[in-house]
Every structure is written in C-alpha cells, then in structure tokens.
Amino acid sequence: MAGLDILSPEGLRLDGRRPHELRKIVFRMGVFKQADGSAYIEMGNTKALATVYGPHEVTSKSKILHDRVLLNCQFSMATFSTGERKKRPKGDRRSTETSLLIRRTFEAAILAQLYPRSQIDIYVQILQADGSNQSACINAATLALIDAGIPMKDYVSACTVSFVNDKPLMDINYLEESFRGPQLSLAVLPKSGNIVMFQMDSRLHVDNLERVLDLAKKGCTDIHALQRQTVHEFSQECLPSLTGN
C-alpha cells in the first residue's frame, strides 16, 4: 500500500467517499423463479446473489430438530469473483466460517419455532468481491427470506466499518480491507436495535469502540431504509398476483 493513503489530507477516501458515506447500493428481489425466494445486491462493486429454499422436509434425518426449523447456510465465492482466480468456490476455512456466521445471524431473526421438523436452505454467492462481503451476503439473504415468505422478527441489516487515522470508515471496500486495520462487521434488527452479529477482526482500542459502533449502527439503519423501500416496491408489483387480477 506504499504511497497510497487510505484517507487523504482532505478527508476523502480512495474511491472519493467521505468517511461516513455508504457506497451505492442496488437491491433486486425475486430474481429466480425456481427458488422459493431470491435476491441480488450490489454494494458498490461487491455483488452477491442469495437464494432461499424451503421450508421443506429435512434432507438428512439425523439433523432433524423437533422444536424448531433447521437452518442450512452455504456461503461461496465464485471463482471469478476475486482479482486472482480462486481455486475452490467453497469449502475452505474462511467460507465455512462465514456460512456459520450467517446461520447464527438468521437463527436469531427467523421465527424458528413455527416450522418444527423442517429445513430452510440459504445459499449466498459472491459474484464480485470488493470488501464487506459478509455484510452484502446478510443483506441479500434477508431480502431473499422475505421474498420466500419466511416469518422473521425484523429485517437484518449489516454493515462493515473500519478504523483508520483516528476516523471510523463506513462500508469499506477491498483496498481498505487489505489495509488490515480493525474491522467490525455488525448486523442488527433495526426496529429494536438488537445486535445479532458482531465480529471484530484485529485490535481496536476500547475508547474508540463507541464511535465505530455508532457509525456501524447508523450504516445499518440506512441500509434498512433501502431494504424496506425495495420490499415495499416489490410488494406493489406482486399485489395483482395475490388478489388474482
């Protein structure tokens, strides 16, 4: 990163944003017909697809849960998603960890006790990786779950924040991620403000935590507003099919 400043003296970042600004976000719902629910997201140059299948009968009898639904998550990165071509799209340690993280996040949001003995599959794939991958996946998966009509307590909105030169940076991209500063991925249920995922990479002084957390929460709130808008626009389009003409 020699010669490159993450934050210029004028207070601008490498892609021209101010520290507290999100990238341009595009949501799209119902992109696949075969799946029960699907969504596509672009956060700047990060692009992700999420598909949801279910609730349906569990595929392996040994994993059956008698009091709530079984959540099965799979995170993968397309081989062409990164600058250097990836060897395996999934199954490495990092993507397994992310799968687990997404599963934990949605276990807190889905009303799981409504569907005992069944299973919900969430598949997310990164098509283009430019930082904040986990957050993009969680945001997309939320919309896919809503599209599938799966009951949830609230939306799940996620945002990744870094901390550089005494300034918290919102929604970091790949370059800022590879700077190896502290990184906080946060997912919240926006209405109640409950935190459902909190992941910190590298170290951050506790005095700064408050500021980083506040910015991340603000990012989540903004993303929630966008998600809600997308869902309501999509709902308007779907209305005729529900009322049958």
Partner: peptide, 13 residues
C-alpha cells in the same frame, strides 16, 4: 386494477 391501492402492505418488523 381498481381497489388495489387501498391494501395495507406491511413487511417484517
């Protein structure tokens, strides 16, 4: 068609 606008649409939360 007619009458759709009056529907009350909600989303989770």
């Amino acid at each position: 068609s007619v009458g759709i606008e009056s529907k009350h649409i909600v989303s989770p939360g």
